[in-house]
Simulated assay, not measured.
Amino acid sequence: MVDRIGQRVVCAVLAGDTDPFTEKSLEIEFEVSRTAVREAIKALSAKGLVETRQKIGVRSRRSSEWNLFDRDVLRWVLADGHNPVAVTQLIEVRRLIEPQAACFAAERRSDEEALAIEAAARRMHEKANDLAKFNDADMAFHVALFAATQNDYLICLGRSISGALLGAFEISASSSERAIASAAKHLRVAAAVLARDGAAASAAMMAIIDQSSSDLAMGLGSRRNGPD
């Protein structure tokens, strides 16, 4: 129920519809108790999607108020393939943050952190034919990279971004061939981090983001156009 209501709210707001709705209407539609509806609304409120107002009902919030780093919210935003602005904004954030994070990781990492980054990149290569495990390794790579920056703000931001990235990974890594190409780029970042070469790590990370941008656009295009 949370998933269905969340996607409905996102689609409605992006289409310009912010009309409030009532808990009673959801009870009737989903044939559930008031308690179940309130738990669903509570979950969506925590994601920044809705708020409850007395005498008004449940009001959808503006997209700028959503927790866009939440994995579910990003998935709902990208679900129908008709929101190129969200894709552009996500890539912009990645371009601003991740290359510098890779540079810091290369310059500041411990030996254990460098090995964790390398191990995650190697798992990506090994699991290229299993996209679920590939995506898990991809997320582990980015979490490990942010951890190696030795910057508490970036580490916290990395944890927030990781959920959003996983939602994007599930759309963009659509074939083993593209997964292999992505893994190779992640291995280049890992090699630069091991070599303590900040400039090379930053450039290699930018190459990852460039490919991710292309893959995400392709994945969204496939969802929008449907199967041939």
Rank of each mutant, 00 (worst) to 15 (best):
L166S: 03
R123S: 12
R123P: 00
K133N: 13
N151M: 08
L157M: 11
I161A: 09
A137N: 05
N135F: 04
A132H: 15
A116E: 10
Q150W: 07
A116P: 08
A128T: 08
L165H: 02
T149K: 05
L165K: 03
C156W: 10
L154K: 06
G158M: 03
A121K: 04
A140M: 09
A121D: 02
L115F: 11
K133G: 12
A168R: 04
M139A: 09
D138L: 01
D138F: 08
L154V: 08
L145I: 01
E170K: 10
E113F: 00
Y153A: 15
A132G: 13
I117F: 10
E112V: 13
L154P: 07
D136A: 15
A132K: 15
S162N: 07
A121V: 02
N151D: 13
D152M: 15
A164E: 02
K133P: 02
L166K: 07
I161T: 05
S160L: 12
R122W: 10
V143W: 02
A140V: 06
R122Y: 10
E170T: 09
I117A: 08
N135G: 06
E170G: 08
Q150V: 06
L166Q: 04
R122N: 12
H125C: 10
E126W: 11
L157I: 06
A147C: 09
M124G: 06
R123I: 01
K127E: 12
